[in-house]
């Protein structure tokens, strides 16, 4: 019995190791820099994460989604301010990054919105965030939590 399940498990192990080998069309060359977020007040307010996503490879990559144990609904959003000075925020959809290019998630523009927080975001702590790409690859980052009034990764 034990032996049988071990043998059955083998193809799965091979499949998993195949997925983490550099067989993707681009996302293995994605580098995430300067990730940061703000501490939360309670868990009812959404959080926001900022970072620069750089494509150092030779193929375009498309960021399709996010995952984190910290929030049940993480989503890439974009804030916009119209000609009347009215700000609004909406899901940004998929984001394609051309080879050699980068996309900045920064205050007042693109941000990783963390909806339905599962835990407090406490200044000084970090949390894992995974970016998923259309080629099936994933890039994991550890995001530092700064103060509520933080203005950027250095403040």
């Amino acid at each position: 019995m034990t032996k049988l399940s071990y043998i059955n498990g083998l193809p799965l192990v091979l499949l998993l190791s195949g997925m983490s080998s550099p067989a993707f069309a681009g996302s293995e060359d994605v580098v995430v820099e300067n990730a940061w977020s703000r501490a939360s007040i309670g868990v009812n307010r959404p959080g926001a994460v900022y970072m620069t996503v750089r494509n150092t490879g030779e193929y375009a990559v498309t960021l399709t989604g996010l995952a984190t144990p910290l929030a049940m609904m993480p989503e890439i959003h974009e804030s916009k301010t119209n000609s009347n000075g009215v700000s609004s925020m909406a899901p940004a959809g998929e984001i394609t990054i051309e080879p050699g290019q980068s996309v900045a998630l920064e205050p007042g523009g693109l941000h990783a919105m963390l909806m339905m927080l599962q835990n407090l975001m406490i200044e000084g702590e970090t949390f894992p965030l995974t970016l998923t790409f259309s080629d099936g690859g994933e890039v994991a980052v550890e995001v530092p939590i700064l103060g509520i009034a933080a203005r950027g990764p250095e403040s």
Partner: peptide
Amino acid sequence: FTYCPDVCPTTLSDISG
């Protein structure tokens, strides 16, 4: 509004600066 994750804390941080 205080449930604003992006624009409001950014503006209040700017004003603070």
